[in-house]
Design a protein around this nucleic acid. Structure first.
Lengths: 338, 338
DNA sequence: TTTATTTACTTAACCGATTAAGTAAATGAT
DNA sequence: ATCATTTACTTAATCGGTTAAGTAAATAAA
């Protein structure tokens, strides 16, 4: 587009581009008179410096990348809100990349980011990320901060919540409310947060003198119909669970719908706890007991730490990792007596 | 970061940077032997071209900006999904800017975008946008496409849904289900889509021989407590409505909560229709009758049209506007007999 | 055999900004 | 009055690519 450049300002004012550049940056080498002339013309012509010219020269893009699986998910959209807020504060721009849980896409995106397009990367890996060379390669070129779905193999800052403890808490809560057979829905083998939540679940069962039956750990995959069927089957067995932990928000809909279909009552026949950041949980029928993650704060912290690293290149990112606790919010889906 | 550049490849291969550049772009001026040598070294050293260098020369950033009020909102997050999908397909990158409904922020963002940072802009204005100079100025420099919250004053492509018709449909549906006193929650005076929804509401009332009472058009603002209070007051009057249309999703929670608090039963005492793209509406108590917008498709279309314009600079954007209809999905919040 | 053309490069300019180094004029110091 | 310093600029190099224009050598045409 035919935009105003420094060259055009210089010509108009009979100055060199260097003088104009320095005037705009308030250099002591330029007289007040000239500064005023430059600033006035720049304002009049609505001059906006071209960001890529400066970036090239300064080797600094003032841009970060956010690589996440999905944005139509309360957790990630809230986290993105937090990231963006901090980015703006720091005069940075945020490029967003959605992997849609596809490993190949993640690889392609990270490869592109090696180019110098961004100064730093904030990311949450896909459910399927099980090799890490692409991440290691990028991490050599650009500072990275992980949040939520972190990658243990990379030595950098990781913002997580207390997943294992939450798995424990959720399960313990169901035990406290009288559940005997507690199931858990698992999203991905390779995801560390998923593994931790399940570890917490197993520990809670063990601590209360129960056994962990593998058949109560249900895989929840990509295929919605299959997920639904799997739940329906589970809920129709003689040994059907009387308590269930959903490790991600979107599982909740299926649980409620299958219960409606089969005539199972929540919480009388089945008590439900879900990891969720949805604002509608309070008006579900019954309202849903949740483990609510500090999504916004996690995004904010991830971004803050990244900017700290960008300002201080001697910062050791791996020492900046933090764990922000989630909250168990008890509602009616786990009421004991009704 | 110390990345591989064309200069380094050139030195290593005893070639000029021009030769390397041409080899990488498969120019006929370069011999097969040399191309192979270049390509092999580039692959071995994991060369990724610096995007800003090319952008500067080509005056093309391969980046678009998405300016929206919020991302923690089902409509916008789904739309963003659609936009991003099309961007990737076209080899483009998406910069995201959130206005958080703040007019000043919108102005600052648009000003920055005049710089040449992006090749095009997709946007949905804030609730408060009531002057348009900042948009007009940007539109002179960069092609823009509006979606959902469009700006009538700007002559360019606008992707909307049939808002007026939907306001009519929602209201008519409540009339059909026997409602006598129908209220509507309004988000913003200046927002054209809001105005249209309310026009549809008024038309439906008129067409069925009723009067439109101003007291049934409720302003819903920024302050959550105030919104809640206003609803509570409305529902406590002798003349309280027996039907209500929520023009945005987040109002639903308040309606349900106020009803719970006051012991009003949905749908017996109050029937509710909401504009919403939330996936949880089916498991609310009672499940919520919605006008569901084609959010993903709107995002996709907006992006497709923008890229069409980027490929063909003679395209007249204002002729590409389109209206994608929403869908009334009847659920239990508007059941007539119970 | 001589000239024309093609091949396979290199040189140099450019995109828009920044900045180190150079310079002429004005001011200050001795 | 002379040299030193400061002021207020300009020139030129740079970031990492792309490309128009130039060129030497090889091949083809007359």
């Amino acid at each position: 587009m035919g935009n105003i450049t420094i060259k055009m300002l210089a010509k108009e004012l009979n100055l060199s581009t260097a003088a104009v550049s320095k005037a705009l940056r308030d250099s002591h080498e330029i007289s007040e008179r000239t500064k005023t002339r430059v600033l006035e013309l720049a304002a009049a012509l609505n001059y906006v410096p071209h960001p890529y010219a400066g970036s090239l020269r300064e080797k600094k893009s003032n841009t970060i990348a956010v690589v996440i699986p999905e944005v139509a998910d309360s957790f990630f959209s809230l986290a993105l809100n937090g990231i963006e807020a901090v980015a703006i504060e720091n005069g940075y721009h945020a490029l967003i990349y959605l992997t849609h849980e596809r490993f190949e896409r993640e690889k392609t995106i990270l490869k592109d980011l090696e180019s110098g397009r961004v100064d730093g990367v904030i990311m949450s890996v896909t459910m399927k990320t099980n090799t890490f060379d692409h991440i290691k390669t990028l991490n050599k070129a650009v500072p990275m901060v992980f949040f939520d779905r972190v990658c243990e193999e990379i030595d950098t800052a990781k913002i997580t919540t207390n997943d294992e403890e939450c798995g424990y808490q959720a399960t313990q809560h169901l035990i406290d409310r009288g559940c005997k057979k507690i199931a858990i829905l698992s999203i991905s083998e390779s995801l560390s947060i998923n593994a931790k939540r399940i570890q917490g679940y197993q520990q809670a069962l063990l601590d209360s003198g129960r056994q962990c039956e593998a058949s109560y750990i249900i895989d929840y995959g990509d295929d919605p119909t299959e997920n639904f069927e799997r739940l329906r089957k589970l809920f129709q067995t003689a040994d059907r669970p009387d308590g269930i932990v959903a490790t991600v928000s979107k599982m909740t809909t299926d649980i409620y719908l299958v219960c409606m279909e089969l005539g199972l009552r929540i919480p009388q026949d089945l008590k439900v706890v879900s990891f969720s950041n949805d604002s509608t949980v309070a008006i579900l029928n019954p309202s849903l007991t949740t483990i609510t993650q500090p999504a916004f704060e996690m995004g904010k912290s991830a971004a803050s730490i990244l900017f700290k690293a960008l300002k201080n290149k001697y910062l050791v990112l791996s020492e900046e990792s933090m764990v922000i606790p989630s909250e168990l919010i008890v509602r009616n889906s786990t009421s004991s007596a009704v």
